[in-house]
């Protein structure tokens, strides 16, 4: 019984983290048709910015701890905004209209450049921002002790998902974006300002990536390479859910998160294969992912 409860809790926590990481990726893909390999680097930049800012705050001041949560989010927003605008205006803008696969490779080049840029800016020593994590304490559920920060992350992730959904479904801008996801040519013909929408989307995506990194930073040691590790995970979640679908990313994250937690508790030897196993299974039966739409074939 305890372990079933543990699977549910661990699975939801992991899923909420996966969703945070995957949301930005799926938004960018949905609107811009760019599968952004550099998404992991945005995650890492968010983590580094947050860890260095929060670390600085606690090393130099005796201010109240709650400010550190604002710093965490603030660092991610600023970092995501700056990097997003620079990359979109400075690089991607020159490349629009190229082959989808070529765009993947362009973002791969970007990933290589950003990884070393981070090393130049932050070095290779670890950064820590554990205060926000340990400050919240923990909750005991029988033998199981759960970190409150992790539980809060589930809430944040759910709120963020709802917010994104409401924005896409309920606002004008969201409607324009959805129109672009459905059919770019027609929306352009209808007078949508594609350039502006692309900038907004890309910056939103990078900020989401950076936010995921910033919210993860307190629980980990921020070191080189953390971005590389999340790329494939985020890709898998997005592909399982259906590219470009926020709901799909949420379901994909839950599926992967729960399967992984179940594997850790009941069949640790399969843990290494879970993500790829789930992905292969889903794609075998739903070639476009769970919530992907089958596109009409154009002649």
């Amino acid at each position: 019984m305890t372990s079933l409860l543990a699977v549910l809790i661990d699975g939801s926590i992991y899923a909420s983290w996966l969703f945070l990481v995957a949301a930005g990726l799926t938004v960018i893909y949905g609107v811009m048709r760019i599968l952004n390999m550099a998404h992991g680097s945005f995650y890492a930049i968010g983590a580094y910015s947050a860890a260095s800012l929060v670390g600085w705050y606690f090393n130099n001041g005796v201010g109240p701890a709650w400010i550190s949560y604002l710093l965490l989010v603030g660092a991610a927003l600023v970092a995501g905004l700056i990097v997003g605008v620079i990359v979109e205006r400075g690089l991607l803008r020159l490349m629009y209209g190229r082959d989808e696969i070529l765009m993947v490779i362009i973002t791969y080049a970007l990933l290589l450049i950003l990884e070393d840029t981070m090393k130049i800016v932050w070095g290779v020593s670890p950064y820590f921002a554990y205060q926000p994590y340990s400050e919240l304490g923990r909750t005991s559920l029988g033998l199981l002790k759960v970190s409150n920060y992790d539980l809060a992350l589930v809430g944040v992730s759910a709120l963020l998902g709802l917010g994104l959904w409401a924005w896409l479904e309920r606002t004008n801008q969201g409607k324009v974006l959805r129109a672009m996801i459905h059919d770019r040519e027609i929306s352009v013909a209808m007078g949508v300002n594609v350039r502006l929408m692309f900038t907004i989307t890309f910056v939103l995506g990078t900020t989401l990536g950076a936010l995921a990194g910033a919210l993860t930073a307190p629980a980990i040691s921020v070191v080189p390479g953390i971005g590389i590790e999340v790329i494939v995970l985020a890709f898998a979640v997005v592909v399982i859910g259906g590219l470009g679908s926020i709901g799909g990313a949420a379901v994909g994250a839950l599926l992967v998160g729960l399967s992984r937690a179940a594997a850790v508790h009941y069949a640790p030897e399969f843990e290494l294969f879970v993500i790829y196993g789930v992905m292969s299974l889903v794609l075998a039966f739903r070639p476009e992912g769970l919530f992907g739409r089958t596109l009409a074939r154009k002649i």
């Binding site: 305890t2 372990s3 543990a6 699977v7 809790i9 661990d10 699975g11 926590i13 992991y14 983290w17 033998l143 199981l144 002790k145 992790d150 993860t216 629980a219 980990i220 040691s221 390479g225 953390i226 590790e229 992984r260 937690a261 850790v264 508790h265 640790p268």
Partner: peptide, 14 residues
């Protein structure tokens, strides 16, 4: 390089 050990820590704790 997984970095997050939530499920593992639960499995060990119990």
């Amino acid at each position: 390089y997984q970095g997050q050990y939530g499920a593992e820590i639960s499995a060990l704790s119990v």
